[in-house]
Write a protein that binds this DNA or RNA. Sequence first.
DNA 1: GAAACGTGGTT
DNA 2: TAACCAAGTTT
Length: 363
Amino acid sequence: MNSYTDDFSILNFQRDLVDWYKMNQRDLPWRADQDPYKVWVSEIMLQQTRVDTVIPYFNRFLSLFPTLEALAEADEEKVLKAWEGLGYYSRVRNLQTAVKEVAEQYGGRVPDTPEEISKLKGVGPYTAGAILSIAYGVPEPAVDGNVMRVLSRILLIEEDIGKAKSRTLFEKAVRELISKEDPSSFNQALMELGALICTPKSPACLTCPVHEHCRAFEQGRQRELPVKEKKTKVRHVDIAALILWREDGKYLIHKRPKEGLLANLWEFPNVPVKKRGQSEIEDLKVFLEAEWGISAEIGDHISNLDHVFSHLKWDIQLFEGRCIYEIGDKDDLKWVTFEEMEAYPFPVSHQKIIKLAKEVAVL
DNA sequence: GAAACGTGGTT
DNA sequence: TAACCAAGTTT
C-alpha cells in the first residue's frame, strides 16, 4: 500500500485520543449543543482566530442573531457591527449570504452532505468537514492547522503544510484514522490536542495522551515538525487620513467599497500618499475636491499611527480639518456625531482614529 | 498556486 | 522589535 498509516495502531490511537478528549475538553459555548447553525457560526469565527478571542463574539452574535432565520433577515450593517474587531470581514458577509441560501433553498435546514454544504459561500473543505462531523456525526475530515501539525508529528509527515496541496494528503490520512463511531469527538480531539498539548513551539509530549503513537516523539523530532516555509515581509503603505469636522459637531465618515480590504466597513477620509514628505495635505485636499466635491481647511497634524494587517502595514499620518464647502449627498458618505458613529462598523485601524478624534474634539 | 484577506497574543 | 501564530476561504 504505502500509506502514512501503514503499521499504525489505528484503533488504539482512536481510543486514547477520544478518551482523553472526553475527559479534558474545554467547556466552550458552542459545545453546549449540536445545533448546526451554532456550530457553523463558531467554525466561521474560529477561522484563523483564537478561541479566547471568539468566545465573547460568539455569545454576543448568538444573542443578536439566535437563529439562522434571524441572521438571514438581519441588516448587513448590524451583522458587520457584531463582527467589528474580529477581522476577515468577508467571513461574515459570506456567512449571511450562505444562511440566506439555506433559508431559501433548504427550508432553513443546514445541508448534511459534503456536496451541498460545500457549495455554500465561505464553507471550504475544513468548515464543511467540521460542520458535518460535529453537527451531524458524518465521518468527514476537518483538517485545519492543528490537525496538520498534530498529524505531521504523529505520522512523521514532512510535507510543507504551507502548500495548499498538502491539505489533501492530511485529509487522506484522517479518512483512514477517523472514528466511525464518533467522528465529532475524533475531529475535535485532534484540534483540542493541537491547542492544548501538541502546540507549535514546545509540545507537552510527556503529558500527551497519544505519545506512544507518535513517530516524531519516538525519534525526538517533534520540534522539527511541521515543516512550514516562512512568509515574506508585509508591504508598507503610506496613508494620509483626515478627521473632517463641521460647525454642527458632525464628522465625515465613508463606507468602503463592497469588495477588497475591509469591504463595506466605514472609515475616515484617507488617501494613499505617493511620496512621503510635505504633499500629504495637498493630496487630501485634491482627493476631497475631486472625489466628493468637498473643500476643506486642513489644520493640525494630529499624530502618526500604524496598523498591521496580515499582508500589509498602514503608516497613517492623521490630520484634522474643517469643512468649508460641500455639494450633494452620497450613499457612501455620512456626517455623524460621535454618538451616531457607534452604530457603524469600523475596522480597528479607524477605531484608533475615532479615539484620537474624541481627544482632539475636547480641545 | 500564490496572494489577498484582520486582529491580537506570544516569543 | 519583528516574526510567528490561531478551528481557512476566495480569487
